Computed example of a mutant assay.
Amino acid sequence: MATADLLLHPVRLRVVQALLGDRAMTTGDLHAELPDVPVATLYRQVGVLADAGVLEVAAERRVRGSTERTYRLVTAAASVGPEEAAGMTPEEHRRAFGTFVAALLADFDRWADGGAAVPGGLDAARDGVGYRMTGLWLDDDEFTALVADLRRVLGDRLANEPGGERRRRLLGTVFLPG
């Protein structure tokens, strides 16, 4: 199965996104984070991702006569490469983008729905939630420099490990010509 086909399944994409940030989770942990996904579906899709090498087993332990596996994302295997993207049809790109947006909306809904349980309700500033679109006038060289700058800034932070006051934060990017 091609990487794009593998990742464009909505449940598999959500599993991949749940494991971003060097998280290690059992299928039970994943179900707690994705409670709307039936358990059987979750197990099946985790198995597909593991068989494809997108997930690796980080640990195993015996629980009541069965083996509980903890999975970790293999980041290099969890993205569509430039060569594959270049070979995608316009319809495949639409499907990929639609799946990305649907997963982004699901993450946003989880935040919005969780706000009801927090004293004071939703607070985008407190939670660091923001969304906006900006238009920039850039030639190709300036755009390439911008992307390189973003990779450097983000790369410095990708090595951060969980702990202390750190919270896992999701960052989605979309670049489109205007």
Rank of each mutant, 00 (worst) to 15 (best):
L136F: 14
L138G: 06
L19P: 07
T3H: 04
A117Y: 12
R168P: 01
R62H: 10
R69E: 13
F143V: 08
E60K: 14
A112W: 06
G53Y: 11
D113K: 12
A103P: 06
S79H: 08
T134K: 14
D127C: 03
P119K: 10
L176F: 07
A78N: 02
A52I: 07
L34P: 08
A124T: 08
F143P: 08
V174R: 14
W137V: 09
F97L: 15
M25L: 13
D36A: 13
L34Q: 12
V39P: 00
F100G: 01
Q17I: 03
G65Y: 06
A24D: 07
A96Q: 13
D107A: 14
G98T: 08
G65P: 07
A52V: 07
A18I: 01
G87S: 09
A40K: 15
R44I: 06
E83G: 02
S79W: 00
A102F: 05
L138Y: 12
V15M: 05
D127G: 02
H9E: 14
A103R: 01
L42E: 03
G121L: 04
V48P: 05
L19T: 10
G65R: 12
E83S: 06
L176D: 12
S66R: 15
G135K: 10
P35M: 09
R126G: 08
A86E: 10
V63P: 02
V54M: 15
L170T: 08
V74S: 00
A24P: 00
E142D: 15
A86F: 09
V39G: 03
A102M: 11
P119L: 09
P38H: 00
H93M: 10
S79R: 12
D29L: 02
A96F: 03
E83K: 06
L150W: 06
G115M: 03
A50Q: 14
A145F: 00
E83M: 06
R69Y: 09
G164Q: 09
V11H: 00
L105S: 07
F175D: 09
G81H: 08
A50T: 11
G81N: 14
A106L: 04
V16W: 03
A40S: 14
D51Y: 04
F175I: 15
L7K: 03
T26C: 08
E92S: 01
R64E: 14
F100R: 06
R61M: 07
G47Y: 03
L49Q: 15
A76D: 10
P162S: 02
L7E: 07
V39M: 06
V129K: 01
G115A: 01
L34D: 01
D5P: 09
G172I: 01
E83P: 00
G65W: 08
A85L: 07
G178C: 09
E84C: 07
D29H: 02
P10G: 02
V16A: 05
T3I: 11
L42T: 02
R72T: 05
G28M: 15
S79A: 12
D140N: 05
F97K: 11
L42S: 00
T3V: 13
V16K: 05
L6T: 12
R44D: 15
L136E: 13
V129R: 04
R110N: 01
R64T: 12
R72A: 08
